[in-house]
Design a protein around this nucleic acid. Sequence first.
DNA 1: GAGAGTCAAGTTCCT
DNA 2: AGGAACTTGACTCTC
Length: 321
Amino acid sequence: MTIVRLGYVAMSMNLQNCSPSKTMTFTQFEKIKDREAAIAKLEKIAKNNIANCLRLLKHSVANDVRFFRLSSKLIPLANHDELHDWHYMNNLYDGLGEIADFLDAHQMRVDFHPDHFVVLNSSNSEIVKMSLKTLRMHEQLLKGMRINPEHRCVLHIGGAYDDKEKALEQFIHNWGLVPVSLQKMLMLENDDTTFNMNDALYLCEKLGVPHVFDYHHHLAYHDESDWEQHWGRVVNTWEGSGLPVKMHISSPKNEKEFRAHSDYIDVQMFMDFLTSIKGSVNRVDCMIEAKQKDNALFQLVHDLKKYGEIKWIDKASFEID
DNA sequence: GAGAGTCAAGTTCCT
DNA sequence: AGGAACTTGACTCTC
């Protein structure tokens, strides 16, 4: 028996005016002559993003969804070079504290997926430095929400730079430059063009990092199609974690644009996957990555109702035998 | 208000 | 060497 919990990404198609990712471009920032006023504007946006984040969490719990990806764009221009003197965290603790209180009251798994500017295997030390800065911001946000940062940020491995083997070794080298507290925060995902499941598992096993298996990425890019023979290794990378195995689920937009995300999830593809893994692991949390966000999750739940082998626990989690 | 073009950041592909 | 695509939600400007 396996317990499956569904989650969705960062924003809702149902809540109005509830973006957690509002921003201000640097160009606009510079246009405001009074720098203090400009920073005040950034702070207002950040506060509002965090308030909207709490609204999203409440909306999720109201629908039994207890798995959610936080936006990595909560703080506009947070790590911009020209704003290095801005202590963006100072005004955010109240808002983050409210999220902390809410999370304390509800069993909920939240985490981050910093975007593609975080590249840990770069041989350019400036890029690695900026990447670490961005990861430290994520760590501070997690601490502000009183979340144990362990295994709360999923990353891609990075660039191939024309030599994949070398790029993997560069990752291992650079890993030594990553502070231990940040190392503990990370998980690694297989991508859809460069580093497949085997590559990610190689690093995860070597460095003691949980592997987030992305089934759609695997279908788009692999050197052997049989992922099932390695599934046990995926599960093993989670052994030392206090959290259940985490997965990414999405569906191809169409044959031609296979790698792009579709609006909704192909229920048969998802069931094929579940049928393969059921019983191999006690719990698995599936992050639904679809253009229609929470609506894609609700639609998937609806589509899953026709499968008799699924026993529903609540509106967004179930058991499968 | 709708629609087109732009945005801090990286990598890869194309010329 | 330099520019566009990638992929993305939100912003900004124009009409």
